[in-house]
């Protein structure tokens, strides 16, 4: 863990859109996130997985500068969007942050109903983000762009739909509007916080496709938060596994899911894999992770997972160091794990 910052900084200057370094978030006496470090490069799609209560959404909110009152963040968050920002976003004021939000980076939330303003026509809401950031010269130009954007997210009859209110749209349509808003100013970073959890599978499939297409077209970076491993594997190239406010494993999707090292990742994959590799698993009992996620601030010292881990030993009482698993262009925080008795591979 000590060797981490140096490595990431070097990469951050190269091509990273977002670099998060030693991000910690806590309430007065309760630490919630510990030393979260990762970078996301241009055009890279990174998934963030973990159970609820593990700190996924908090990470996203900290990056966006949207932490609820009473929580303090420390560490270093840098975004290079239109201007290669040299500032730590945690230090800048709300005014500055408002300028970055919706422009350099934007976010798609889980609940499309609450993310949209019920009293405003959806077209105006899409236009608003462009007018606020002055990316369109006039109202008329913004309106034309709105129709274009709504068309891009496959909404039928966009000119007419722009005049409707959120309640007139279905869940999938609303989420498309939210996506159109998020992509309106061609952000360098798109954060998606469980964007499809509230949607049906078929609608989810189309929305995921739109998200990926939208991000690819802009060559933007994406941080995709979900607890559905199938979705991450479909959408992302790289994955960060989070538990108890720490990143416990990271790496390319293929490697992490096919050959997990951290016991938590292994447990998650086992519990969520209902079908097994060759179709049906039969009615054998599913492997589970014993117990449940402890409430915030009640995670054990040392390895955060040791209270639920079958392999925990005395060594786990001290914080396990980050073990890089191999070279990765995004630095050693991008590929490795923090476990003293890793699973799989036969190596340590």
């Amino acid at each position: 863990m000590t060797a981490r910052p140096v490595e990431t900084e070097a990469v951050a200057d190269e091509h990273a859109v977002l670099s998060v370094d030693n991000l910690s978030v806590g309430a007065r006496h309760t630490p919630l996130l510990h030393d979260v470090s990762f970078t996301i490069g241009r055009g890279e799609r990174v998934g963030l997985i973990g159970e609820s209560g593990s700190g996924k959404s908090l990470t996203a909110l900290a990056v966006m500068g949207l932490l609820p009152e009473g929580l303090q963040a420390s560490g270093d968050v840098r975004l290079s969007a239109r201007t290669p920002a040299r500032r730590n976003l945690l230090g800048v004021g709300e005014r500055e942050m408002a300028r970055v939000r919706g422009d350099g980076m934007s976010m798609v939330f889980q609940e499309p109903m609450t993310a949209l303003n019920p009293t405003m026509r959806v077209g105006d809401q899409v236009a608003e983000v462009m007018l606020l950031h002055r990316t369109q010269p006039s109202r008329a130009a913004a309106r034309r762009r709105v129709v274009e954007l709504l068309e891009k997210v496959d909404l039928p009859d966009p000119a007419h739909l722009a005049r409707s209110y959120p309640h007139e749209l279905s869940g999938g349509q609303r989420q498309r509007v939210v996506l159109a808003i998020a992509l309106a100013n061609d952000p360098a970073l798109l954060i998606c916080d469980e964007p499809t959890t509230a949607l049906d599978v078929t609608v989810q499939a189309t929305v995921l496709d739109l998200v990926v297409r939208g991000v690819e077209a802009r060559h933007a970076a994406m941080l995709f938060i979900t607890h559905d491993l199938g979705v991450v594997a479909t959408v992302c190239e790289r994955v960060l596994v989070m538990y108890g406010g720490r990143i416990v494993e990271a790496g390319p999707v293929q490697e992490v899911f096919a050959d997990p090292r951290h016991r938590y990742t292994q447990g998650l994959i086992g519990a969520s894999d209902l079908t097994g590799a060759e179709g049906r698993r039969g009615r054998a009992a599913l492997p589970t992770i014993p117990g449940s996620v402890p409430p915030a601030g009640r995670f054990p010292e040392g390895c955060v997972f040791r209270t639920r881990c079958a392999h925990a030993t005395q060594r786990c009482e001290t914080l396990p160091p980050w073990v890089p698993r191999g070279p990765h262009p995004a630095g050693e925080t991008a590929y490795g794990h923090a476990c003293v008795h890793p699973a799989g591979g036969g190596t340590t």
Binding site: G230, A233, I269, D273
Partner: peptide
């Protein structure tokens, strides 16, 4: 069925 994201198929 085609719309279900599946870990194995995604990999």
């Amino acid at each position: 069925l085609a719309a279900v994201p599946d870990l194995h198929q995604a990999l």
